[in-house]
Design a protein around this nucleic acid. Structure first.
Lengths: 113, 113
DNA sequence: CATTCATATGAATATATTATCATATGTTTG
DNA sequence: CAAACATATGATAATATATTCATATGAATG
């Protein structure tokens, strides 16, 4: 039976959850944030907030060379932050899910204080 | 006058907010995530979820040398993710605010899928 | 006030990461 | 099916980052 929790109760659970997280998960967590921690990659993510785009469009938007962009797209893809599909010659990239949005929104809140 | 928003409406605003974020803020955002993106630093943060601790305690918990820990504490401090106060000879560190918790919780949600 | 304890810091080394260049792969089209 | 277009990839060089070592700073205490 799932009881609804008060906000402060939920906060306590988060504390407990994180305080007791194992080393492997912490390492995965660091890896995840490392992916967000590069300005090329975060610019790609922000760009994809406008909607799905192919590689050429992303290069144009960021004013960066295609190879550099492709390398970073691969890292974002492996980390499951973006997904892709082929459309003819082009590869169309888009954000993988809403976690990307939430994580970035939290980050923005922090820096805007 | 502040109107309450539906969840989907809020999501749209976040999209718009991030899609139109300027280069400087994106760069700051990358810097912020870079701080989370190191396993020593994230282990320190997780350690501090148990409550405030001095440097020696953190070193013991992480089984790491004092200098390495101090260097990383400084980075966390400058990024305003932790705060410190002196207590006699010791320096007591603690998490700066709830954003750290929220950001890490979002990250954990992502990797646990 | 000299010593000890706790922490911080600078320099150096080791390691990791990114962008670039050259080229390969995959897809369409004449 | 050869050429053109779109993207991916491997190697390399440039740069950034973390840890270690040695030492400095700062506070308590006999």
């Amino acid at each position: 039976m799932q009881e609804k929790q008060s906000s402060s109760q939920m906060q306590k659970n988060i504390n407990h959850l994180i305080a007791n997280i194992d080393e492997v998960e912490l390492s995965d967590l660091a890896e995840l944030f490392k992916v967000f921690g590069d300005s090329t990659r975060i610019r790609i993510l922000a760009d994809l907030f406008q909607g799905e785009k192919n590689v050429t469009e992303i290069c144009d938007d960021l004013q960066m060379n295609q190879s550099a962009v492709s390398h970073q797209l691969k890292i974002l893809k492996v980390s499951r932050l973006i997904k892709s599909r082929r459309e003819g010659k082009a590869m169309i990239y888009s954000l993988a899910d809403d976690h990307v949005k939430t994580i970035m929104a939290m980050g923005i809140e922090h820096i805007e204080e």
